[in-house]
């Protein structure tokens, strides 16, 4: 029995095939085209970067809880690293 929401599939695939993520492109552009000299950040200018909150996931346990919830409720997983506890919830 057909069960597709063709509208949603089309939208998701269009996003993926078309421009992807603005962040992906921003990162790719920055990583690929920047000479290091052009974006030089001196060691004494890294005070803000040294703060604990300047991490992609500042709280390890909060991140683990989020990953566990979404893993158990959605078909997608991955992206933030390798390994991690297995779970029979999905």
């Amino acid at each position: 029995m057909p069960s597709r929401d063709l509208g949603l599939r089309a939208r998701v695939e269009s996003m993926a095939a078309g421009v992807g993520s603005p962040l992906v492109w921003l990162a790719a552009l920055s990583l690929g085209t920047s000479g290091c000299a052009a974006l030089k950040v001196e060691p004494w200018d890294r005070d803000l970067l040294a703060e604990e909150k300047m991490q992609f996931a500042p709280s390890a346990v909060e991140n683990e809880i989020d990953q566990h919830i979404y893993f158990s409720k959605e078909a997608s997983t991955g992206g933030s690293g390798v390994g991690g506890g297995g779970c029979g919830c999905n």
Binding site: L23, V24, L26, A27, A28, S30, L31, S34, L39, V41, D45, R46, D47, L48, L49, M54, F56, G78, G79, S80, G81, V82
Partner: peptide
């Protein structure tokens, strides 16, 4: 398997790209 790149763009801005 995972490959990741993290890049400091400015003293305020950090970006990363992970392919898994």
């Amino acid at each position: 398997g995972m490959v990741g790149i993290t890049r400091v763009l400015t003293r305020r801005w950090l970006v990363g790209l992970n392919v898994g």
